[in-house]
Design a protein around this nucleic acid. Structure first.
Lengths: 204, 204, 204, 204
DNA sequence: GATGAATGAGCTTTCATTCAT
DNA sequence: TATGAATGAAAGCTCATTCAT
């Protein structure tokens, strides 16, 4: 039944619904994110949701897509700048942007990220992985000496997943044992120390 | 109306319910973990659940407690052995044990861990944090030179959270881009490289 | 989530639910007056109840309000006529009307009145008290000599409460020891005798 | 299954259960009067209830019987004294005793009386009616002139039912518009005025 | 006889989804 | 196309009653 919106008005309605999905999720949590709530906040009738979405699930699916797309849109333009920085600065910059991104709009995306795994979010994450791979690749190409580092895919995997989760975990923690700056500094050091040590080992 | 079990039979019922909670959670996910499902799998009537648990929430709470307790029971006896190993070996050993632990019993704990954040699991994690802190502390005391590393709390935070999540993420991924051994090796290298580099810096 | 009915159809549904509440209460008593029963008799889905009522309690509340409102609507127009009659005739007339009112529609209101106390019905009775007070007041003003009676508030209280209950008790009794006419005559005599005696005492 | 208790110990258990029924009903209301509550307060196991009572219903039935029996036991010994008093004093005395009776023991009986109709209490009330009839009869025989009053059964019916209900209603009302003494005085006056007026009429 | 663990029918309530308007 | 009233399956939970111990 769900039809792809072809008209401008329809597109606006879809946007309003997805937007409302984010707002409800952020403000009241996933339990209160009912179709009624979404429709109310979107300012449309419940029935209209089903004009554009097969079911509630699909709204979350589109939200996940949008989350990923927005994350990519946030990172993509930073790449040229990041790849020119020293590794530690690049990581610090990226983490700061990521934090701002998660906290923007009433922590909308942070709240969503918490429930990401439950919401089957992983199925949407691939494009982001690709963008981050591109970032790593470009970085390596701008810093040819780093190409000697062994196991780059593995280390990327660890950095990306460990880093993302540590940040989310930290931002969600009402009483974190360390500050965000310490966390960021730590992660940046981790990366740069590892890189330096690795290069030193290779050089020997 | 929840009362403490006084008879042997009662204790068995409580265990069956918690056990059924894990099974249901692992097999069908948290959405399908209804009181009815739990009762059916436990082989008891729905009413029996409420003889021993105030409400459904409390089942999850007890499950979380048990998960944490089991994790601690797994780690605690390893400590004497781990603290005597070189850092890299210690990390590798710990990760291997952690993987086995998560995958035991039809991946019960792995499946639960995926939904940990959704289930408000964080409120139960403190004892585990303490155990891991103890592990770190004892390790440091057995390797006095490592005490010179700066920002140990921060690095512990990163290692523990980033490490745990990377492993869970990896084990959940049906088609991971790297093998578990590569992941473990990478994490171990990350820790040991960081340590070495840090000590080198301090020595300078 | 209870919302005010905006469409004509909605108003009909609300009415059907309240109507079904009365029917169920009258036919099966308060214990069997479940949301399911009400929905079935109203010919609507259970869910519809909660479109218009916050909870089951509120149905009883609205039923009480309607009962009181209907009683008032029955009494109010009688007042001009009643106040012009001799006291005994006035009481007889009122009692006859009250009986007819209670027995109308399959004794709906009589059956409900039986359970009035259990249902916390007292909280809704004030408007009726006011109407009856008005009746008494107007009666007194049309018969100035009666103003000399002492303790009018007390006697009103006794007459109203004792009278209402005696009638309900009588109508509920499958084998009453006296006829309704005897009861009515007795109550009317009670009032008129008391009045006469009181006036006689005052005159002395 | 329910067997009549033959032994002293069994009789004590039955008593404890009925007693607990009154306590629970008075303290927590009929909704909280579950078999569990009753058993807990009685200090017996839930199972024991079913040794002596067919079902929950029967407990209420026995409670009603006991309520009536106690009421009779309260009234019966007063009869010789009451029948010797002037009518007004007799009524005042009876009402005072009735109030004390209802309010004794944490208002146990008053609370029960409120729910009497719901609990099908009427089926147990006959012995009390008989006692009250006896009181009336004896009173009439001690005051032969009153035998000339017409419609004595009707007036008894009104006095008894109207009186009982007015008192219960008044004692239940958290903010009654008149004091209990005013109510009692009013009822007593009602009776005596009526009697006097009736006798005057007959004499004419 | 006494117990209380176990039961499960049945309660109130929610909410994704449908469909007449 | 847009609406929101209506739906009913299914949730969490209660409690009178049973029965093995």
């Amino acid at each position: 039944m769900a039809r792809k919106p072809r008209q401008r008005r329809a597109k606006a309605t879809v946007d309003a619904i997805v937007e409302a999905g984010f707002i409800t999720m952020a403000e009241r949590g996933p339990a209160a994110t009912t179709t009624r709530q979404i429709a109310d906040i979107a300012g449309v009738g419940v029935g209209s949701i089903y004009e554009y979405f097969e079911n509630k699930e699909e709204i979350f699916s589109v939200m996940s897509d949008r989350f990923i797309a927005d994350t990519i849109a946030m990172i993509q333009p930073l790449i040229p700048e990041l790849v020119r920085k020293p590794i530690k600065d690049a990581v610090l910059e990226l983490l700061a942007r990521f934090r701002d991104f998660l906290q923007a709009g009433d922590e909308r995306y942070l709240k969503c990220a918490r429930h990401a795994m439950t919401l089957g979010f992983e199925q949407h994450v691939e494009p982001l992985q690709k963008t981050l791979s591109e970032l790593v690749t470009q970085y390596l190409m701008h810093h040819p000496e780093t190409l000697q580092i062994r196991n780059i895919p593995t280390m990327s995997y660890i950095m990306i997943n460990g880093g993302i989760y540590s940040v989310i975990r930290h931002l969600c923690d009402p009483a974190p044992p360390i500050s965000f700056d310490e966390l960021a500094e730590g992660l940046a050091n981790m990366v740069s120390h590892y890189t330096e040590r690795e290069l030193a080992l290779v050089r020997e």
